[in-house]
């Protein structure tokens, strides 16, 4: 039984992180029958600024809905990495976009650096699926929710006609995560 696993997805407005958070939460709650809570925090900007989405997954009841001590932080921008990494717990996981995050925060956590945006633009061919590439990476590295559940949740959320593109994005991310781990 898992108590509380806390994930924070951070970047700038418009990168689709809130959607990614919803997908993760749905994967855990609907397809794995666990409890999951997704919250968000955003500024006045629809695009840009620092934005974050949080997902708390647990096999028990989730009272406090926000993250307290992060198990995993994903940062797609330098600003969000600086702003949101303070809550990472000892031994936690930090996944960063190597093309966009240059200064690493100091702390006792494992850092996984991957060219997330580049994978989306170069390997998948569309920057818009950066969030789904990130989900693939995160799924593999965190190992908390199954690949199958996340894929089902993605398919239930993305617009019709984009399923193939999104599956490709997820697979590319998952593969990149796998390469990094092995």
């Amino acid at each position: 039984m898992m108590e509380r696993y806390e994930i924070r997805l951070s970047g700038s407005g418009g990168q689709g992180l809130i959607l990614a958070g919803k997908i993760l939460a749905e994967a855990a709650a609907i397809y794995e029958g666990r409890n999951a809570v997704q919250t968000q925090s955003y500024g006045p900007e629809a695009r840009g600024g620092a934005s974050k989405a949080e997902v708390v997954i647990s096999d028990g009841e989730i009272d406090y809905p926000k993250a307290l001590e992060l198990d995993l932080l994903l940062s797609l921008t330098q600003e969000s990495c600086r702003k949101y990494s303070g809550d990472l717990k000892k031994g936690g996981i930090l996944i960063i976009d190597s093309g966009l995050v240059k200064d690493l925060p100091k702390g006792e956590f494992k850092v996984y650096s991957l060219p997330i945006t580049e994978i989306a633009t170069e390997k998948v061919g569309k920057a818009v699926v950066t969030n789904i590439v990130a989900l693939g990476i995160l799924t593999r590295i965190a190992g908390v929710i199954s690949e199958e559940s996340v894929k089902k949740a993605i398919l239930a959320r993305v617009p019709k006609g984009t399923e193939e593109l999104n599956m490709k994005a997820f697979d590319e991310g998952f593969r990149a995560g796998n390469e990094l781990l092995s």
């Binding site: 958070g21 919803k22 939460a25 709650a29 409890n35 999951a36 809570v37 997704q38 919250t39 968000q40 989730i62 809905p65 926000k66």
Partner: peptide
């Protein structure tokens, strides 16, 4: 705002 924007079961 937290309740309004928290997605859960």
């Amino acid at each position: 705002e937290i309740v309004g924007h928290t997605t859960e079961k």
